[in-house]
Design a protein around this nucleic acid. Structure first.
Lengths: 168, 168
DNA sequence: TTGGAAAGTCAACAACACTGACATAAAACT
DNA sequence: AGTTTTATGTCAGTGTTGTTGACTTTCCAA
């Protein structure tokens, strides 16, 4: 990977289209591995990735509203509603009417919802842990930096909001 | 990120569940950004991500067979066939009967297929280039290492096959 | 008290995946 | 030569996840 320092101090990267394409394919193949373990578990519960995402973000921020979840997940309310309906009917998620604002619904995991979320995230964390271990400690920071730089600004806000609350 | 060297020499990483979860969310949000630009272009052509993937891998290995594409993409032949049918009907892909083995179909991009693939991959490469630039040169190697370690072995084979042929 | 935001619902539709069954041609094997 | 396997394509049906559009109910706030 060629790079050099300008007089100003910023680094210039010279990347061939070929090297960039490798990065693109790496993202494609890696994402498949990233979702493979949870997908297998979800199949047993007759749920899909959309349910996993909802469980994840409800678990991360218990009591979050439907609207907040919508902006994180970037889907329509009709689409999210179908997913939440399943989760509520299956007794995995509880929806409580807001106390301050009774229009809002606050979402919480039930005991069995938390158990499933735990099962899913443990599997995914193990994959991530293994990848980190294999790549080595110096790789982890680079991995995170590039991913963050790849996000849309809107999404990066959601990512960093969580970061301020819980990370570092 | 805590790490230490064992007497044996391998590095041990101590990662909290929280740090791993951040990596998981980074993958989720970054993948959205990663696909956002091509998705916008594909909409104009009334095509989807599946078509993009097919165009990408046909472009990468012109003359590839349907079977080879199937194992790379990891979908059923019925699913791939629907996608290829559209691309062929739209004049973006050409399917030629094999010369050695006449059962096989070899896939090539037409002129307009190559033009679309170029448009898509340029957009995606620019996103990747921008992310690399923002993250800095030392991050790129780490990014690639972790992604590769996250792949299923089967997929890593496909990834590295291309690597041997064209990279480094 | 009225306007608008938040949430939910119904219907229709599309993309993209799946399974299962079946057809055809050609290669490979016995 | 006859059988089996491989590569591909196709038809029909199904499921998940997304979309739009229209409409209702609830209820906060100006």
């Amino acid at each position: 990977m060629a790079d050099m320092q300008t007089p100003g101090g910023q680094s210039l990267l010279f990347l061939t289209d070929e090297q960039l394409r490798k990065g693109i394919e790496a993202m494609f193949f890696a994402y498949r591995g990233f979702t493979a373990d949870p997908d297998r578990i979800l199949d047993q519960y007759r749920l899909g990735r959309a349910h996993h995402r909802a469980l994840h973000f409800i678990s991360r921020a218990p009591g979050t509203t439907v609207n907040n979840l919508l902006s994180i997940l970037g889907v329509t309310k009709q689409s999210l509603n179908r997913v939440l309906r399943t989760l509520i009917d299956d007794g995995l998620v509880e929806s409580r009417v807001g106390t301050r604002d009774k229009r809002e619904r606050h979402l919480f995991l039930t005991e069995s919802g938390a158990a499933l979320e735990q099962e899913l995230s443990t599997a995914q964390r193990e994959r991530m842990r293994q990848a980190y271990r294999e790549a080595g400690p110096e790789a982890v920071q680079g991995f995170r930096s590039v991913l963050e730089a790849m996000m849309d600004p809107e999404l990066r806000r959601h990512f960093n909001r969580a970061k301020d609350e819980r990370d570092e």
